[in-house]
């Protein structure tokens, strides 16, 4: 039964090696998808290229369905799998700040690393900026400490907070994603920018 490493107490070295291999897969998938291009990523918000939506939601759905079926077949102990802790205030405010950073800088941390790997200069500056941002947060942490720890609701699942089964939420997410794919592809036709698509 999984997850393998925490259950079978596999050594730290192997764990780090697996981290590295998973990272390679992660970076490869991001780059192949085109997440190494800031104008492609930004296209999401102007409708000329909705790759972000397609890749992001397809990946989330695949992993979610995979976990649901693995759980059903007794292949994974979901009580060990990490579920993000929910601090309502900081999740929303942090998300808003990240959203602003996304549209201004054109990357998110993962994609910036991947873009820097193939020589995107703007991505390298973005990484530098991120380090500065984290340092600013660290230096001014006492100012935010209260907000950071406010409204703690634990490792709450959306399905539990809605009071529905995990599987039903899975179905709802899938239906919502397909609707978004469909709308997004219409948008891609309507806001087509050949000049940009050719360059990125």
């Amino acid at each position: 039964m999984g997850p393998i490493i925490p259950l079978f107490e596999i050594s730290e070295e192997i764990n780090l090696l697996i981290a590295f291999l998973i990272g390679i897969g992660f970076g490869f998938a991001l780059e192949q998808a085109g997440f190494s291009s800031s104008r492609k990523l930004a296209g999401m918000f102007y409708g000329y290229d909705i790759t972000v939506l397609k890749v992001f939601f397809t990946a989330a759905i695949v992993a979610m369905l995979g976990l649901l079926f693995m759980n059903y077949m007794g292949m994974i102990d979901m009580s060990i799998v990490y579920v993000n802790e929910y601090y309502m205030a900081s999740a929303i405010i942090g998300g808003v700040i990240m959203g602003a950073g996304f549209i201004i800088g054109g990357f998110c941390p993962g994609t910036s690393v991947c873009a820097a790997a193939i020589g995107k200069i703007d991505a390298m500056y973005f990484i530098g900026g991120s380090l500065i941002g984290i340092l600013i947060f660290g230096q001014t942490y006492p100012l935010w400490e209260k907000l950071y720890n406010a409204q703690y609701l634990g490792s709450l699942k959306l399905s539990d907070s809605l009071g529905i089964k995990d599987g039903i939420l899975g179905l709802l997410v899938i239906v919502a994603a397909i609707l978004m794919f469909w709308l997004g592809e219409l948008a891609e036709k309507r806001f087509k920018r050949e000049d940009i698509s050719k360059e990125i």
């Binding site: 649901l68 759980n71 059903y72 007794g74 994974i76 979901m78 089964k165 995990d166 599987g167 899975g170």
Partner: peptide, 9 residues
């Protein structure tokens, strides 16, 4: 997935 009963391993 929605029809399958929820299991706890």
């Amino acid at each position: 997935a929605a029809i399958l009963p929820q299991k706890k391993n």
